[in-house]
Design a protein around this nucleic acid. Structure first.
Ligand SMILES: [Mn+2]
Ligand SMILES: [Mn+2]
Ligand SMILES: [Zn+2]
Ligand SMILES: [Zn+2]
Lengths: 137, 137
DNA sequence: TCTTGACTTGGACACAGTCCATCGTAGGAT
DNA sequence: ATCCTACGATGGACTGTGTCCAAGTCAAGA
C-alpha cells in the first residue's frame, strides 16, 4: 500500500515518526479531512504530535503535489490524497459531505480566448452543489 | 443606477444609513470586495459604521440573492454584486485578481447520473486559475 | 408625536492557520 | 557504536476572518 511513504522517502525526506503517521492517515481511502481531523487521527497513533507539525507536513505534501488542498466553503481547508487522478467535487449544501466525481467535458476548451483577458490559464476546478441522499430524504 | 436599493426597499427593508452605504459600495462596478474592504469603503462615507453591521448586511443581501458570496482561496470571502448574470471566475494565482468569465458549455450536463450518487445537484461553480498579464510579464 | 421592534454598536469570543525560539533526533560521518 | 549537526518537532503566542451578544438607537407606522 504505502506508495505515499515510498515516494516521500524517494524525494529525500527525513523520515520521522510524525511524518509517517500523517502519511498513513492520508494514504488509502479517498477522504477529505481537515487539518485538525488529520491531527486527531494522527494523535491516535502518536499522542504527542503537534498541530504545527501536521500543518507543516500537509503544506509540504501539497507543495510536492502528493495531496491536494480543497476549499469548498469558507470553512477549514480539506486535504485530498487522491492527487494522481484528476477529479472534481460534489458537496452537500446541508451536511457538507464531499464526493469525488468525474465529469465529462473540458472546461478549458469552454473558455474562449476572448474570455481569458490575457491570462495564462493553467487549471480549473468545478464544484457541484446539491443535497445528498440522506439530507434530501 | 441604484436598482439594488430599490429592490431592497421593495422587500420591506427598513432603510438605514448603514444599509444604504453598504448597498452603494456594492452597486455598480463588477468588483469582488472582501467584507473588510466593503467596511473600509463604507466607513469613508459613514465613519461610525461597524464591522458587525457590514457583516450582517452582507449576509442578508446574500440570503436575498442580491449578491453572491465567492471564496476562491482559503482567505476572506468576497462579495459579488453581479448576481443577476450567471458567470464564473478567473483568478490570478500570483496576485489574486479576479475576473468575471462566461464559459460556454454546461457542467451540469457533463455530470452523468452515475456520477451523482443520489444527490440532487442544483448548482455548480467553475474557478479558472492562471497568471494575469501583469504577473506573467 | 409616540411607540416599538427592528437595527446598530463595540467588544468579547471562536475558529483556522501562522510564526518563532527552543529542543530533539535522523541519518551521514568517523 | 558513537558523534555531529542540520533538519524537523514543539507549544504557545499571535493574526486574520468571522460570529455573538447585551445594551443603546432609530425608522416608520399609528
Ligand atoms: Mn477528492
Ligand atoms: Mn463575479
Ligand atoms: Zn447531506
Ligand atoms: Zn496577477
Amino acid at each position: 500500500m504505502s506508495d505515499l511513504l515510498e515516494r516521500l522517502r524517494g524525494r529525500g525526506w527525513r523520515m520521522t515518526s510524525q511524518r509517517r503517521v500523517v502519511a498513513e492517515v492520508l494514504d488509502g481511502d479517498h477522504v477529505h479531512l481537515t487539518a485538525d481531523e488529520v491531527h486527531a487521527r494522527a494523535a491516535g497513533r502518536l499522542p504527542e504530535i503537534s498541530r504545527a507539525t501536521v500543518y507543516n507536513t500537509l503544506g509540504e505534501m501539497v507543495a510536492l503535489g502528493e495531496i491536494i488542498e480543497v476549499s469548498t466553503d469558507g470553512r477549514a481547508k480539506r486535504y485530498d490524497p487522491n492527487a494522481h487522478h484528476a477529479h472534481q467535487h460534489l458537496v452537500c449544501t446541508s451536511c457538507g459531505t464531499i464526493r469525488d466525481v468525474h465529469p465529462t467535458g473540458d472546461p478549458l476548451s469552454d473558455l474562449p480566448a476572448a474570455e481569458r483577458f490575457g491570462f495564462t490559464v493553467s487549471a480549473f476546478e468545478v464544484t457541484y452543489r446539491g443535497l445528498c441522499p440522506d439530507c434530501s430524504a
